[in-house]
Design a binder for these strands. Structure first.
Lengths: 193, 193, 193, 193
DNA sequence: CATGAATGAGGATTCATTCAT
DNA sequence: CATGAATGAATCCTCATTCAT
């Protein structure tokens, strides 16, 4: 279980699925299209490596989420204070959204189309850390008193909104966008004297 | 053309489509499910009233968008200044999101799954007015200098984020949520001395 | 039964059916298209006047066949000898094929698509008279000894071939075509000295 | 691509389609009937091997046309003069019409129901060679001066007429029919004294 | 492991026909 | 008589999944 070839094939298939979903949307992401995108000669191969479509899609989400988390954490855990970390977090989000646009779009599409049962782990895991950071900032007096969960959701939503904008308008100036969001949430969170 | 019965049936079918999409997602919204939800005896009846699935989905979007626009505009165009209008706009958005949760979820699902050609009219029409309001506030000196398009997107995204939260957690305290968002964007937009 | 209005409606529907079949082929000749062609507001009206589709199609065949027979007979029964009558018959066939192209095409399409049980009455009735004429010519010594049924079929087939040509190439020179067929069958039938 | 199994299945399906069309007519030739005729468990298998119905029908036409052309050419290209070749051509046509009745009927039905765009290749390709043979005979002085296109059409139509007769009356004496047609067109084409 | 053929359920859509008004 | 809404069977086609090789 989990030989090298096996791992490589699964990755190949997941990557193809990401590309198809990001390109044509989840609705058009059939095994047929994914197999063609991956250069496979049979959809049977996908079924061989994944128990069913749901499992493939779960892996798509898991993979992108792992990349994303690693990317963002590496840029956020800087040992600086919460305010600085929040700035780093937002910047990292925007950067990932632009460099991994297809991955993120695919993940959001899947999450919307195949909602998991109960509280969405995506929604939760992603937000928990951010809310914790915000609360830490409040404890240290760098942030004003706001509802950390609402603020976290607003920050994450702003990044998702950027994704939609990027889909419609790929030539967007990200430097400006980043700066605007940094200022926006700086003003929204900082201790009001 | 467009008799009373006809209109009633179309509305019935659109309502059923909204319910199915909000409940099971767009991917599962087949004519079969919609017909069952609507209590129709045959999917043929849907085809009788709508040229094809796309036309039905377009009407779903159009219907919800009309409700939404009317609801929000009625609460926003108060003759007050931009800052007050922005507060009204955000409050109206949150209120509509909670009272018409299924409608809004369905609309967003359809818009994501069936992207229209060219710039998404949903994305555009919805945002244009908000950005205009923000610029007006800047002209009048009520708002600071920010990129109105980015800010508009952030505001709308915050509302969409609320929707997702509501789906996962229907018991959410909306009064708190509204108040938090009002403060958030008040701080983010107001003229910094 | 068979009031004036009734008759008029049936004719209107049959004419529309002929136009649709000749234009788009039997396969596309749905009640919906026929109703639209006839300017009717409902396909129900067709069902009201015809027990079922088969009956409508039978009437299409019957109607065209009646027109055709009347047209040809009027030009053939000239009181002249069989050879002259054969010439008149062929000329009349070509003329009808050109002036009533749609009608004849529709009839042939229906006859091919909905073959009646047993010996095709179209095939029979149409040919019987012609074969009889040929045999009469043989009795009178104007024609050589050939199989009258085969010859009759060849003559009728030549006219059907003309129809196909007309469908593909409407600008055909019929005067030439007629003359050629007259000579062809004159040579084929006349007493060889 | 084009494995042995693949070819065998395609042939099996085409054969079943021919049988159904010849038996019940093109209008009744649904995937369901064809699958049943072929002993397949699902219409999906037909879709697996043919991109769509049109492609299947095109292959039906192509297959029969290839058989027919090969059959007739092998009996016509005898190195003899045009008159002898014409006799061979007619005899071969009649023979093929009797031995491959279903195939020919199916082909004609499809060609009538699914007219290709532009000039019908069936109508054209089939006739071109025959007309050429006739013109060659005129150049060599074996045939009289007639319109070669009209004559070619008459000859082909006579064969189609035989097909219709065979459908209605399978017990037809073909030896007689052949002899009659040979004489008919010999008289019609040969140089007059 | 990989292939491609096969399966059968489910998809949207078309259609002839029925029926209340 | 005419209308248009409704019905349900049938059509082609797509798809995830299975399985022998």
């Amino acid at each position: 279980m989990a030989s090298v070839t096996e791992q490589a094939r699964r990755k190949q298939i997941v990557d193809a699925a990401v590309a198809v979903i990001a390109g044509d949307g989840y609705a058009k992401a059939s095994f047929g299209r994914i197999a063609k995108q991956a250069g496979l000669s049979s959809t049977g191969l996908i079924s061989y490596h994944f128990a069913n479509k749901r499992e493939l899609m779960d892996e798509v989400v898991r993979t992108v989420l792992a990349e994303f988390t690693e990317f963002v954490l590496a840029r956020t855990d800087t040992g600086e204070g919460p305010a600085a970390q929040l700035r780093a977090f937002i910047a990292a989000n925007v950067e990932f959204a632009s460099t991994h646009r297809t991955h993120l779009l695919a993940m959001l599409d899947v999450a919307r189309a195949e909602p998991s049962d109960g509280p969405d782990p995506l929604l939760e895991a992603d937000l928990r850390g951010l809310a914790e950071l915000l609360r830490e900032g409040q404890r240290l007096g760098e942030f004003r008193e706001f509802d950390a969960d609402v603020m976290a959701m607003a920050i994450r939503s702003a990044r998702d909104g950027l994704l939609l904008r990027l889909r419609a308008d790929p030539g967007l100036d990200l430097a400006v966008y980043t700066e605007e969001l940094l200022t926006l949430f700086d003003l929204a969170t900082r201790r009001t004297r």
